[in-house]
Each structure stands twice: as structure tokens, then as C-alpha cells.
Computed example of a mutant assay.
Amino acid sequence: MKRCLPSPWLSAGLLALWLMLTRSLSPGNLLLGLLLALVLPVLAAPLRPAGPAVRRPLVLARLVLRVGGDVVLSGVEVVRGVLRPGHARPVSRFVVVPLDLRNDHALAALAMITAVIPGTVWCELAPDRSRLLLHVFDVSGDDAAFIDHYKNRYERPLREILS
């Protein structure tokens, strides 16, 4: 079954997209849409990378909850830093984080985590994937404390889950 229909959700989406684009439910459009929805995922299957092997699902669940909480807390801190002009100004700067991750899926997950947390921007990954340049909205304390926090909070769980 997996060889004939490698990605059922992709097939359903392609059929729906075809029918929306043609704006017709005629038998010919349904047949052509169904044909495209069945053939295109089979032809594209060799191009898709292998999915990651998740080794520690409980660590993954904890990481998802942690990131969700960090998004909310960081959003509040950014709003407070922007809307309170009379108080201490945020200290924003670029921070170079040394990386231990080498797994492509783990690096992609780390990039997504960094992108969704307000106040952090993934700027550059070194060509040898050993360092990451981040721009941080407010670095309270020294860079070493932020690097330690970032690595323990996000990189270490990703290494447990995907490496």
C-alpha cells in the first residue's frame, strides 16, 4: 500500500488543490485530479529525504512544552522591553554559539525553535556547522551564560532526541 500511496495527505491535498484551481467537479476534472494525486507523490518519493528517527519521545514532549512556554515568556519580555522606554534598555547583540549538533534534522529543528522564540534570530551557520551566529534582543549578563542556557535548553534535548 505504501508503494502505491506513499503520502496520503499529500495526495489528498493535491486533489483538493486541483479541484480548487479548476473550479469544477466535472468527471473529467475529478479523474485528472485523482490521477495527478496518485502519480505525483509516487514520482516524487525518491526525492524526499528519509525522516528522522526519534529516540526519546518523552524528551521530545518536554522540549515542545518548554519551547511553547519560552515563546510566551519571551514574547512578554520583548513587549515589556519595547513598551517601557523609561526603564533599562534591552542589551541586544550578536552571540556566537558553538554547536555540538551535526544531524541535519536536529539543526533544522534548532533553526525552527530559534525562529519562533521572540527576540532571537538565527543569522548564520558556519560552513563546517561548528558555530551558530544568533542575534538576541536582550542578553542579560555575559555571553557565556546565554550560550550555556541556549545549549542546555534546546541543543542538548535535540541531541538526545535525534542524534
Rank of each mutant, 00 (worst) to 15 (best):
V91R: 15
F146A: 08
D138H: 14
A145N: 07
L63S: 01
R129V: 04
V121R: 12
V67Q: 11
H149I: 00
A88R: 15
L25M: 12
V42E: 09
L60H: 06
V71I: 14
D104W: 03
N152C: 04
Y150I: 01
R102K: 15
T120F: 11
A44G: 02
H135S: 02
G119H: 02
V39M: 09
P46N: 08
V39D: 03
M20G: 00
A106R: 00
L83N: 10
R84P: 00
R156Y: 06
L107N: 07
A144R: 14
V116A: 05
N103Q: 12
F137S: 09
A53Y: 07
E77C: 03
L25K: 06
S163T: 13
A50F: 06
V82T: 10
V67D: 11
L17Q: 02
F94M: 15
S11L: 02
L31M: 12
M112S: 15
R156C: 05
P157H: 03
R159L: 12
L73E: 12
V59W: 04
V39L: 15
P6I: 01
V39G: 02
R56V: 03
P27A: 12
A108R: 08
E77I: 00
G75R: 13
L15D: 01
L101Q: 06
G33H: 08
P41T: 07
D138N: 15
M20H: 02
H87I: 01
L15A: 14
S130P: 00
L162V: 00
P98I: 01
G28L: 15
D138G: 06
G69Q: 09
P127A: 13
A61V: 13
A37E: 05
S24A: 05
L25R: 11
R153W: 03
A53R: 15
M1N: 10
A44D: 01
L15K: 06
R66E: 01
P52R: 03
V76C: 11
L134H: 03
P52M: 02
A61I: 10
H87P: 00
S130G: 14
V91S: 13
V121T: 07
F137T: 05
G33L: 06
R93W: 08
G33D: 04
G28D: 06
A109R: 08
G86E: 11
M20F: 12
H149G: 08
M112Q: 15
V82R: 13
